[in-house]
Simulated assay, not measured.
Amino acid sequence: MSDLNLQAVHENIHQRQSIGHLLEPAPNSEQLEIAFQAALTAPDHHRLKPTHFIVVAGEEREAFGKLLAEVVTDLGEMEEAQVERVKHHPFRAPILILAVTKFVDHPKVPYFEQTLSTGAAIQNFLLSMQAQGFSTMWRSGAVVESIFFKKALGLNEHDLISGIIYVGTAAKAIAPRGEIESQNYVSFWHKKGK
Protein backbone atom coordinates (compact mmCIF):
# COMPACT_ATOMS: atom_id res chain seq x y z
CA MET A 1 0.00 0.00 0.00
CA SER A 2 1.39 3.40 -0.94
CA ASP A 3 2.02 6.06 1.73
CA LEU A 4 -0.78 8.15 0.18
CA ASN A 5 -3.32 5.29 0.46
CA LEU A 6 -2.19 4.49 3.99
CA GLN A 7 -2.64 8.13 4.99
CA ALA A 8 -6.15 8.16 3.47
CA VAL A 9 -7.10 5.02 5.40
CA HIS A 10 -5.91 6.49 8.69
CA GLU A 11 -7.56 9.85 7.99
CA ASN A 12 -10.86 8.07 7.40
CA ILE A 13 -10.53 6.21 10.71
CA HIS A 14 -9.63 9.37 12.65
CA GLN A 15 -12.46 11.41 11.10
CA ARG A 16 -15.19 8.91 12.01
CA GLN A 17 -17.55 10.27 14.65
CA SER A 18 -21.10 9.56 15.70
CA ILE A 19 -23.60 12.09 14.32
CA GLY A 20 -27.02 12.20 15.95
CA HIS A 21 -29.08 14.06 13.33
CA LEU A 22 -28.83 12.68 9.80
CA LEU A 23 -30.58 13.79 6.61
CA GLU A 24 -30.95 12.83 2.98
CA PRO A 25 -29.17 11.92 0.82
CA ALA A 26 -28.87 8.39 2.06
CA PRO A 27 -26.59 5.78 0.53
CA ASN A 28 -28.06 4.01 -2.47
CA SER A 29 -28.19 0.22 -2.82
CA GLU A 30 -24.75 0.04 -4.48
CA GLN A 31 -23.15 2.13 -1.72
CA LEU A 32 -24.82 0.00 0.95
CA GLU A 33 -23.57 -3.15 -0.77
CA ILE A 34 -19.99 -1.82 -0.68
CA ALA A 35 -20.39 -1.23 3.07
CA PHE A 36 -21.94 -4.67 3.68
CA GLN A 37 -19.11 -6.31 1.74
CA ALA A 38 -16.63 -4.44 3.95
CA ALA A 39 -18.56 -5.44 7.08
CA LEU A 40 -18.57 -9.11 6.18
CA THR A 41 -14.76 -9.24 5.92
CA ALA A 42 -14.51 -8.83 9.72
CA PRO A 43 -12.52 -11.46 11.65
CA ASP A 44 -14.73 -14.52 12.00
CA HIS A 45 -13.34 -17.63 13.69
CA HIS A 46 -14.15 -20.74 11.62
CA ARG A 47 -16.09 -18.54 9.19
CA LEU A 48 -19.37 -19.08 10.98
CA LYS A 49 -20.79 -15.82 9.56
CA PRO A 50 -22.81 -14.95 12.69
CA THR A 51 -23.34 -11.33 11.63
CA HIS A 52 -26.55 -10.36 9.85
CA PHE A 53 -28.09 -7.00 8.98
CA ILE A 54 -31.70 -5.82 8.76
CA VAL A 55 -32.31 -2.65 6.72
CA VAL A 56 -35.15 -0.24 7.53
CA ALA A 57 -35.51 2.49 4.94
CA GLY A 58 -37.93 5.02 3.47
CA GLU A 59 -41.59 4.60 4.37
CA GLU A 60 -40.86 1.50 6.46
CA ARG A 61 -39.47 3.82 9.16
CA GLU A 62 -43.00 4.79 10.20
CA ALA A 63 -44.04 1.19 10.88
CA PHE A 64 -40.69 0.56 12.55
CA GLY A 65 -41.29 3.56 14.83
CA LYS A 66 -44.66 2.11 15.83
CA LEU A 67 -42.91 -1.19 16.60
CA LEU A 68 -40.35 0.62 18.78
CA ALA A 69 -43.20 2.32 20.64
CA GLU A 70 -44.81 -1.09 21.26
CA VAL A 71 -41.47 -2.42 22.49
CA VAL A 72 -40.92 0.36 25.05
CA THR A 73 -44.53 -0.04 26.20
CA ASP A 74 -43.92 -3.78 26.60
CA LEU A 75 -40.80 -2.92 28.62
CA GLY A 76 -42.96 -0.90 31.02
CA GLU A 77 -42.81 2.66 29.68
CA MET A 78 -46.09 4.30 30.67
CA GLU A 79 -45.44 7.95 29.89
CA GLU A 80 -47.27 8.77 26.65
CA ALA A 81 -44.84 11.57 25.70
CA GLN A 82 -41.88 9.17 25.91
CA VAL A 83 -43.68 6.53 23.84
CA GLU A 84 -44.48 9.16 21.19
CA ARG A 85 -40.86 10.33 21.19
CA VAL A 86 -39.61 6.79 20.59
CA LYS A 87 -42.08 6.43 17.72
CA HIS A 88 -40.20 9.20 15.89
CA HIS A 89 -36.67 7.82 16.49
CA PRO A 90 -36.43 6.20 13.04
CA PHE A 91 -36.80 9.63 11.44
CA ARG A 92 -33.44 10.73 12.87
CA ALA A 93 -31.91 9.23 9.70
CA PRO A 94 -33.08 8.12 6.25
CA ILE A 95 -31.82 4.55 6.76
CA LEU A 96 -31.51 2.35 9.84
CA ILE A 97 -29.50 -0.85 9.90
CA LEU A 98 -29.91 -3.39 12.69
CA ALA A 99 -26.78 -5.43 13.32
CA VAL A 100 -27.54 -8.91 14.63
CA THR A 101 -25.39 -11.76 15.90
CA LYS A 102 -27.09 -15.06 15.13
CA PHE A 103 -25.09 -17.31 17.42
CA VAL A 104 -23.84 -20.60 16.00
CA ASP A 105 -23.03 -23.43 18.40
CA HIS A 106 -19.41 -24.45 17.80
CA PRO A 107 -17.02 -26.19 20.21
CA LYS A 108 -14.14 -23.85 19.35
CA VAL A 109 -15.96 -20.55 18.91
CA PRO A 110 -17.64 -19.22 22.06
CA TYR A 111 -20.49 -16.75 21.78
CA PHE A 112 -18.33 -13.86 22.99
CA GLU A 113 -16.05 -14.31 19.94
CA GLN A 114 -19.08 -14.20 17.66
CA THR A 115 -20.25 -11.02 19.40
CA LEU A 116 -16.83 -9.44 18.88
CA SER A 117 -16.95 -10.47 15.23
CA THR A 118 -20.20 -8.53 14.82
CA GLY A 119 -18.60 -5.53 16.57
CA ALA A 120 -15.73 -5.64 14.07
CA ALA A 121 -18.25 -5.94 11.21
CA ILE A 122 -20.10 -2.86 12.48
CA GLN A 123 -16.86 -0.87 12.63
CA ASN A 124 -16.03 -1.89 9.05
CA PHE A 125 -19.52 -0.83 8.00
CA LEU A 126 -19.20 2.55 9.75
CA LEU A 127 -15.79 3.20 8.19
CA SER A 128 -17.04 2.25 4.73
CA MET A 129 -19.99 4.65 5.07
CA GLN A 130 -17.57 7.36 6.25
CA ALA A 131 -15.25 6.73 3.28
CA GLN A 132 -18.25 7.09 0.94
CA GLY A 133 -19.17 10.48 2.42
CA PHE A 134 -21.95 9.44 4.81
CA SER A 135 -22.32 9.75 8.56
CA THR A 136 -23.60 7.30 11.14
CA MET A 137 -24.75 6.84 14.70
CA TRP A 138 -24.58 3.46 16.44
CA ARG A 139 -27.32 3.25 19.10
CA SER A 140 -28.51 0.53 21.43
CA GLY A 141 -30.61 0.76 24.62
CA ALA A 142 -33.07 -1.53 26.34
CA VAL A 143 -35.08 -2.18 23.16
CA VAL A 144 -32.30 -4.28 21.61
CA GLU A 145 -32.58 -6.79 24.47
CA SER A 146 -36.36 -7.10 24.23
CA ILE A 147 -37.65 -10.60 23.46
CA PHE A 148 -40.83 -8.98 22.09
CA PHE A 149 -38.68 -6.92 19.67
CA LYS A 150 -36.64 -9.94 18.57
CA LYS A 151 -39.78 -11.96 17.87
CA ALA A 152 -41.31 -9.08 15.89
CA LEU A 153 -38.14 -9.04 13.74
CA GLY A 154 -38.27 -12.80 13.17
CA LEU A 155 -35.21 -13.44 15.35
CA ASN A 156 -34.59 -16.12 17.95
CA GLU A 157 -34.57 -15.22 21.64
CA HIS A 158 -30.85 -15.93 21.96
CA ASP A 159 -29.88 -13.83 18.92
CA LEU A 160 -28.14 -10.61 19.91
CA ILE A 161 -29.13 -7.25 18.43
CA SER A 162 -25.82 -5.40 18.72
CA GLY A 163 -27.40 -2.08 17.90
CA ILE A 164 -29.27 0.09 15.44
CA ILE A 165 -27.05 2.03 13.05
CA TYR A 166 -28.52 5.29 11.78
CA VAL A 167 -27.14 6.27 8.34
CA GLY A 168 -27.41 9.44 6.28
CA THR A 169 -25.77 12.79 5.65
CA ALA A 170 -24.72 14.97 8.59
CA ALA A 171 -27.10 17.87 9.19
CA LYS A 172 -24.12 20.08 10.04
CA ALA A 173 -20.36 19.85 10.24
CA ILE A 174 -18.89 19.00 13.61
CA ALA A 175 -15.48 19.76 15.05
CA PRO A 176 -12.82 17.17 14.27
CA ARG A 177 -11.91 14.70 16.96
CA GLY A 178 -8.94 15.73 19.10
CA GLU A 179 -5.73 13.71 19.13
CA ILE A 180 -5.87 10.88 21.66
CA GLU A 181 -2.96 10.42 24.08
CA SER A 182 -2.46 6.72 23.37
CA GLN A 183 0.08 6.28 26.20
CA ASN A 184 -2.86 6.61 28.61
CA TYR A 185 -4.37 3.44 27.14
CA VAL A 186 -1.39 1.37 25.98
CA SER A 187 1.16 -0.51 28.08
CA PHE A 188 3.93 -2.91 27.15
CA TRP A 189 4.23 -6.19 29.00
CA HIS A 190 7.68 -7.30 30.21
CA LYS A 191 8.63 -10.53 31.88
CA LYS A 192 9.22 -10.02 35.59
CA GLY A 193 12.78 -10.07 36.81
CA LYS A 194 14.24 -8.57 33.63
Rank of each mutant, 00 (worst) to 15 (best):
E113F: 03
G133W: 01
A42K: 03
Y166Q: 10
K87L: 12
Q183R: 14
F64Q: 05
W189L: 14
T101I: 02
V186E: 04
D74H: 15
E181L: 09
R16I: 03
F188T: 15
I19L: 11
G20M: 09
V100G: 11
A26M: 09
E60K: 14
F64W: 12
H46V: 07
S162N: 14
L75C: 07
A57E: 13
H21I: 09
F36T: 01
E84M: 12
G58H: 02
S182E: 01
L22E: 03
Q7D: 11
T115D: 11
T41V: 06
E11G: 00
L67R: 07
H10S: 11
G193D: 06
T73D: 05
T136L: 08
V86K: 10
I34M: 07
R177D: 05
G168L: 03
P90I: 04
T136H: 06
A170D: 01
A171R: 13
V167E: 05
H106A: 02
S117A: 13
L160E: 12
F188C: 10
G20T: 10
L160Q: 08
D3I: 12
I95V: 15
T115K: 04
S187L: 05
F91G: 07
H52N: 12
S146K: 04
E113H: 06
R61P: 13
E84N: 15
A121E: 01
A38N: 09
L4T: 15
I19H: 15
F112Y: 15
T136E: 05
I97K: 04
G154P: 01
Q17F: 00
Q123D: 01
Y166V: 06
M137R: 13
Q123P: 00
K192M: 07
L98K: 11
A173F: 01
L153C: 06
E145Y: 15
Q183V: 13
T115N: 09
V83Q: 06
M137D: 02
Y111Q: 15
L116D: 00
G58Y: 03
M1N: 04
F103A: 08
V104R: 11
A39W: 02
Q114W: 03
S187K: 14
Q183G: 02
K108L: 12
G65C: 08
T115C: 07
V55M: 08
H88Q: 15
L22C: 09
Q37C: 06
F36I: 08
G178D: 11
E145I: 03
F188W: 11
L48I: 06
I19P: 09
E59G: 08
I174T: 13
E70Y: 03
E179M: 13
N5Q: 10
H106V: 05
A121M: 01
E157Y: 07
S18M: 11
F64G: 04
D74I: 02
P43L: 02
N156E: 13
D74R: 12
V143F: 00
L96I: 10
A170C: 03
T169L: 05
W138C: 11
K66Y: 00
E181V: 10
G119N: 03
E179D: 12
L116T: 09
P107Q: 13
G141A: 02
Q114D: 10
A131E: 06
I174E: 14
D74P: 08
G133C: 08
D159V: 07
A99D: 04
T101F: 01
H88C: 08
F148T: 09
W138R: 11
E59N: 12
R47Q: 09
V56Y: 04
I164Y: 03
S162G: 13
L160K: 01
Q7S: 12
Q123H: 10
I13G: 02
L4P: 04
R85C: 00
V109R: 08
E24F: 07
N5D: 11
